[in-house]
Measured scan of single mutants.
Amino acid sequence: MPEGSASLQLAVGDRVVYPNQGVCRVSAIDVKEVAGQKLTFVTMRREEDGAVVMVPEGKVLAIGVRKVASAE
């Protein structure tokens, strides 16, 4: 991610809310080559049905992904 860009610090195992998809758990953060460029992807699995969603790390905030609020 370019320096100075806002990002959401995620780790494998974090629970997040993905708008219009529901609650997901981060299952992987991997670098993949797409069209000759190396990009970091956040892979999330929906808790409702296990569907897998992959989002480029740089788009996580723009999409509206946020961490699940704690009970505290």
Rank of each mutant, 00 (worst) to 15 (best):
A35D: 14
V16S: 00
A11M: 13
S27F: 13
V26A: 01
V17I: 14
T43G: 01
A35R: 10
V55P: 01
M44K: 00
P2R: 07
Q9P: 09
I63N: 10
G64I: 07
V12Y: 02
E47R: 01
Y18A: 05
R45A: 07
E48H: 12
R15P: 02
G13D: 02
K38Q: 10
V26G: 01
D49H: 02
Q9F: 09
R25V: 14
S7F: 09
R46E: 01
L8H: 08
S70T: 11
V12I: 09
A51Y: 09
P2W: 08
A11H: 11
A51K: 10
E47Q: 04
V65N: 03
P19F: 06
E72P: 11
V16R: 00
G13K: 01
R25N: 04
I63K: 07
A62F: 06
T40L: 08
L39E: 09
S7C: 04
L61T: 09
A51D: 05
V16E: 01
V31H: 08
Q21L: 15
Y18F: 14
V55L: 15
D14C: 01
E48W: 14
Q9N: 11
I29V: 06
A6Q: 14
V42K: 00
R25F: 09
M54L: 08
E3W: 05
R46G: 04
L39R: 07
A6G: 14
T40E: 02
Q21W: 15
K38V: 09
V26P: 01
M44S: 00
Q37L: 10
R45S: 08
Q9S: 09
S27T: 15
V23C: 00
L8W: 12
K59Q: 14
I29R: 02
A35L: 11
V12E: 02
G13Y: 01
R45P: 00
A35E: 12
V65K: 03
G50E: 04
A35I: 03
P56I: 06
R25G: 02
M44D: 00
R25A: 05
P2E: 12
G4K: 09
V65F: 07
E47H: 03
E48I: 13
D14A: 01
S27R: 04
N20I: 05
T43F: 12
V16M: 03
V42T: 00
I29D: 00
D14V: 03
A11C: 04
E72C: 15
R45T: 14
Q21I: 15
E47N: 01
G64Y: 08
D30F: 14
I29N: 00
V55R: 02
G22I: 04
G58D: 15
V31W: 06
V60C: 03
K59I: 15
R25P: 00
A28L: 06
I29H: 01
K59H: 14
Q37G: 08
E72M: 12
A11N: 09
V26R: 00
L8V: 09
M1R: 12
Q21G: 15
V17K: 04
V53H: 05
E48L: 14
V68Q: 06
S5F: 08
R15M: 13
E72T: 12
K67M: 10
D49R: 01
V17Q: 07
I29K: 03
K32S: 07
V53F: 15
V55G: 03
G22C: 03
P56R: 04
A6W: 09
F41N: 00
L8T: 08
V55Q: 04
V60S: 03
R66I: 15
A51M: 13
A62H: 07
V52Y: 12
Q21V: 15
V26N: 00
V65Q: 03
M44Q: 00
G58R: 12
V65L: 12
L61H: 12
V23W: 05
T40Y: 07
V12M: 02
P19I: 05
K32A: 07
Q21M: 15
V42G: 00
V52S: 15
F41A: 01
G58C: 06
K38T: 09
K32P: 01
G58W: 15
V17W: 15
C24V: 04
C24E: 00
G50R: 02
A62M: 07
Q21H: 14
K59F: 12
G50A: 03
Y18V: 13
D30R: 09
K59E: 15
V52F: 11
Q21P: 01
F41V: 10
V17R: 06
I63G: 08
F41R: 01
T43Q: 05
N20V: 05
P19T: 04
S70F: 09
V65Y: 05
S5D: 10
A11D: 05
A11F: 12
K32N: 04
R46Y: 03
V26K: 00
E3S: 11
R45H: 14
R46W: 03
G22P: 02
V12Q: 01
M54T: 12
L61R: 09
R45G: 02
R66T: 15
R25C: 00
P19W: 07
T40H: 05
M54D: 05
R25S: 07
V31L: 07
D30V: 13
V16G: 00
E57N: 05
R25E: 08
L61Q: 10
G36K: 03
G58F: 10
E47F: 04
V23Q: 03
V12T: 03
V26F: 00
K59L: 15
R46S: 06
A28W: 05
A62N: 06
V60Q: 02
L61W: 14
R25Q: 09
S7E: 10
Q9H: 11
E47D: 05
T43R: 04
V53D: 02
D49A: 02
L8C: 02
V68L: 14
V53I: 15
R66W: 13
E57W: 14
P2M: 13
P19C: 00
G36V: 01
S70Q: 13
P56Y: 06
V17H: 13
P19V: 04
G4N: 10
Y18I: 13
V12A: 03
G58Y: 15
S7V: 11
A11T: 09
M44P: 00
G4H: 13
L8S: 08
V26I: 11
V52E: 11
E72V: 09
V53M: 15
V52N: 04
P19K: 06
V31G: 01
V12D: 03
F41C: 00
V53T: 07
L8R: 05
